[in-house]
Design a protein around this nucleic acid. Structure first.
Lengths: 193, 193
DNA sequence: AAAGAAGCTTAATATAGATTAAGACTTTAT
DNA sequence: ATAAAGTCTTAATCTATATTAAGCTTCTTT
């Protein structure tokens, strides 16, 4: 198991010493995930924090009409998981599914709590991780309550230059909260400008 | 200065010892805020984490057309602040304004970082605070991309039983991302059901 | 007490975005 | 290699929500 990607991920923010690296390595499990494979399904309890070494995932909810609504995408060097379910240990309402063949590292809750207790640095790193994710979500909420679909699409493309060539417009529409047909219309209008 | 409310707030989650209470007390500044008074304005850097002892605040953005969009309300026993500006030390795009005469405790950034470094318990508490806020925001995003305005209003009322009698419908409409006129129409339809 | 500001509602009209349906194209699985 | 599944687009029609404007009511300030 090549743990370099996650060690690098942590060390960029706060360098880890040998002890901390060893503790981290003993907490992670490597998994290979196929395209379309789920790592979380509605009704499951989310038991792991997942770090993506390679690949791409979507996290979404299926509503009462069977429609999917994408809450989040994550790729290399990012994290994914249903924090609500993870901490409350209640059933999740979300699915997490691989959009590409992927390699992930997972940390189970007891192992994460052990890291928090014995190596304060991880506590800090995860506080900062969640703070940053929170700040991003706030921006998205503001956009959702104050911008048109076209503005949101333009902004999504600008802020996710990597993703745009990697996932389908159907997935992007679901993230923006619009139908694929309307996204197609928006793209046509933008092209003619 | 009666610091009981904030000590109780922390102790409910993780009891504080005498040392920690003393450290917390020396970090906080009490302020009385009048109705319509700002504790943050666009262009300011957010220098404090704010705990609300009594009263009610809204945090909002003013868009290019001069329209306000409410991102968050907070009341007694809650926190408010622009975390993005607080941690990045960049200018905020948000306003935080009292909707009622209020009493707050503020912790300046150096004092908070000092607490984080010297009393790990605060690190944990603030990680959990942000995690919970993050989980709530995720639910709100899901609702925004998957529900009608009527569903969002019904849900807002159900989840904020205290607020509903306390703030105007204009403020609620701004939070939901709709116009006050349309909210009025929704309320009429709900009443006739 | 009076004046002004803010809040709530109604209604007519306009627009953003959804729905339905269909056809062409591309990718994936057998 | 072929069928099946998924993708993208177009267009017609429909619906949710915005805009504008007006009138009435309730707070807030002097």
């Amino acid at each position: 198991m090549n743990t370099q990607p996650i060690i690098k991920h942590f060390s960029t923010y706060l360098p880890l010493n040998q002890q901390e690296i060893a503790a981290l390595e003993s907490a992670i499990i490597e998994r290979n995930i196929k395209r379309k494979q789920f790592i979380l399904q509605e009704g499951d309890i989310c038991k792991h924090y997942t770090f993506i070494v390679q690949g791409c995932f979507k996290m979404y909810k299926v509503d009462n009409y069977g429609n999917e609504h994408n809450l989040q995408f994550s790729t290399e060097d990012g994290w994914i998981g249903d924090l609500g379910s993870f901490y409350s240990e209640k059933k999740s309402e979300l699915y997490i599914e691989a959009l590409e063949p992927s390699i992930i590292f997972q940390i189970a809750k007891p192992d994460l709590l052990h890291l928090f207790t014995n190596h304060p640095k991880f506590n800090i790193k995860f506080r900062v991780l969640v703070e940053n994710a929170f700040i991003q979500l706030q921006k998205r909420i503001l956009q959702n309550i104050s911008s048109t679909a076209e503005e949101r699409y333009v902004d999504f493309i600008a802020n996710h230059p990597g993703l745009f060539n990697r996932i389908s417009n159907v997935q992007i529409a679901s993230y923006l909260g619009i139908t694929p047909e309307f996204l197609s219309k928006i793209r046509k209008e933008l092209a003619s400008k």
